[in-house]
């Protein structure tokens, strides 16, 4: 009898819910390139500062020297706008996308799936922008966008 009782108790408590142990970061991966002799090469612009237009007090990159960026997408609207400063001169980068609410699990709740539709930029430092992968996979550091700088803004590497 006691083993049966123990089994029943064990089964009851085994069904208790667990906490969510996952996080979901949806970030667009942006590679910085320069066209040299008709070939795209990685760029490493100095002093790059980036923030969302509505979050000027929260910098994503602060005077960094990087050749790739990870830009979080705003789940409350269909576009995110970023200010990209290189040596104090600012450009804007607009990312337009479709959003779809997706169920993850009863412990983790819901998340948003993003599909990039369009990327636009101003041209103080940038020559052009191109989407190379439209789907944003959570927690992945993939290159979704190629941002081409004018050669004058490139330190080269």
């Amino acid at each position: 009898m006691i083993p049966i009782l123990a089994l029943m108790l064990l089964a009851t408590y085994a069904c208790e819910e667990q906490d969510c142990d996952r996080t979901f970061n949806h970030q667009a991966g942006v590679g910085l390139y320069t066209i040299q002799d008709s070939v795209a090469v990685d760029s490493l612009p100095p002093n790059i500062t980036i923030y969302g237009t509505t979050r000027p007090d929260s910098l994503l990159y602060d005077s960094a020297s990087v050749s790739s960026l990870l830009l979080p997408l705003d789940p409350s609207r269909n576009h995110s706008r970023f200010i990209v400063k290189i040596n104090a001169l600012a450009d804007t980068l607009d990312l337009h996308y479709n959003r779809e609410q997706k169920f993850v699990s009863h412990n983790c709740g819901f998340t948003t799936e993003f599909t990039l539709e369009e990327a636009q930029t101003t041209f103080h430092h940038f020559d052009s922008v191109r989407i190379v992968k439209h789907t944003i996979n959570p927690n992945e550091q993939e290159e979704n966008i190629r941002l081409y700088l004018t050669p004058a803004d490139t330190a080269g590497r």
Binding site: N25, H26, P72, D74, P75, S76
Partner: peptide, 15 residues
């Protein structure tokens, strides 16, 4: 009361 969170942009009420 679905909450869609973003570390950078903050929480957003889902559908």
């Amino acid at each position: 009361q679905i909450s869609l969170s973003s570390d950078y942009w903050g929480n957003h009420r889902g559908e």
